[in-house]
Amino acid sequence: MLEIRGLTATVDGREILHGIDLDVPAGEVHAIMGPNGSGKSTLAHVLAGRDGYEVTGGRVGFGGRDLLALAPEERAAAGLFLAFQYPVELPGVGNANFLRTALNAVRRARGESELDAVQFLKLARAEAKRLSMPEDMLKRNVNVGFSGGEKKRNEVLQMAILRPRLAILDETDSGLDIDALRIVADGVNALRGPQTSALVITHYQRLLDHIVPDRVHVLAHGRIVRSGGAELARQLELEGYAGMAADAA
């Protein structure tokens, strides 16, 4: 599904990613852990195609396509979804309207028929309910006046509605209480299937109690320094990153 080879990237002329190699096969959930400033968000932004994150080397295959050649909206249409670490506010833009515009753009790009307002609301309400989110979240303006936790849950709602093939969650668990954490985990687990994958970026092991990953990778100083099974997350919880970061230096 996702094949990253020798990926290097700079921000403001400074190299942040020093050569990433990573494979996420279809149907698998991988976790990326690592200390603050290690490049986790940078990797997520590079994969999503954000301007200003310049790829200086390497390549990324996504479902057999050259991901780096696609515009951000084409990546979204191809099934890549990024749950932002810091979701963005869109004043005056209703959440439902935003989501329907997004869903229809993606459906159009995939050659599927668009949903009208009634069909969409039915779907959105059902998803909101499944994730135990208050329905009025759909009526509010995108992320405006949302608490930190609400913003994160709104990202999960968008993910549930857009049904990506690869979901990248950038610290979606940070700052969440245990109930909200479970909602996020439910969202990801509901998406799991033989054709879908997820890359879960997290700082803490606790999310991985609810989303059991197939693989765990440790990112430090812009490199993957360790990879292992789910047990690696627990080991990190006990030992911290210090030892591994030292490996990389």
Binding site: A48, A71, A77, A105, V106, L162
Partner: peptide
């Protein structure tokens, strides 16, 4: 970017 990431 947020909008484009969602497919717009």
């Amino acid at each position: 970017f947020y909008c484009r990431q969602r497919g717009l």
